[in-house]
């Protein structure tokens, strides 16, 4: 893993330290969890606004990624896996986007997470943008799937910050269900 960046004097601290992970998925449902775990790479860590923009300036935007690629933004210490201690009782909101929207939506979502706009305490674990051939998918992971007040608040904030058409379908899936059917979406 990359070294953890120490905040620098004069920088604007974020509420949490975050890691950006990258993975490429083999197409198909039955992805071996071990292989998937091994495909995850931390590509950046940051804890201030300035470090975040510095990282953003060299990272590829979601629309520039090819194949079945995933970019993950997670709090430091939480691995973007269903089985991670912070995720195992959790779930995620899934938003399917037509091609062409992912980069803008992903940046809007990241800004809302880093700026603590969701107002759900410690509940947000991270978010993923998944590049697929026909569509792109954004998901926001939270800790407690059965906390309906929190999940509804996350959905409403997500709708607002992504600025999506009103008829966009959003679906919540628990990580337990994902583990059971070996499928993320």
């Amino acid at each position: 893993r990359t070294r953890s960046l120490e905040p620098i004097d004069g920088h604007h601290r974020l509420q949490y330290t975050y890691c950006i992970w990258y993975s490429r998925r083999t197409p198909g449902k039955l992805t071996n969890p071990l292989t998937y775990d091994q495909s995850l790479r931390i590509i950046a860590t940051f804890s201030t606004v300035e470090q975040f923009w510095s990282v953003q300036s060299y990272l590829l935007r979601p629309s520039e990624l090819s194949g079945h690629s995933d970019l993950h933004l997670f709090k430091d210490g939480i691995k973007p896996l269903w089985e991670d201690d912070a995720n195992k009782e959790g779930g995620k909101w899934i938003v399917r986007l037509r091609k062409g929207l992912a980069s803008r939506c992903w940046e809007n979502l990241i800004l809302a997470i880093l700026g603590e706009q969701f107002m759900v305490g410690e509940e947000i674990c991270g978010a993923v943008v998944s590049i697929r051939s026909q569509e792109d998918i954004i998901s926001v992971w939270n800790k407690t799937a059965n906390d309906s007040i929190t999940t509804i608040r996350i959905r409403d904030t997500l709708k607002r910050v992504l600025n999506l058409p009103l008829n966009t379908i959003m679906e919540y899936k628990t990580h337990n269900d994902s583990l059971r059917d070996h499928s993320s979406f």
């Binding site: 604007h12 509420q15 606004v49 300035e50 953003q56 603590e116």
Partner: peptide, 21 residues
């Protein structure tokens, strides 16, 4: 405790700060 909150326009403004580039 107190949470560190930033709105979108502030974060976007910070994109162009010399320290971030």
């Amino acid at each position: 405790g107190t949470r560190i909150i930033y709105d979108r326009s502030f974060l976007l403004k910070m994109r162009n700060s010399p320290i971030a580039s």
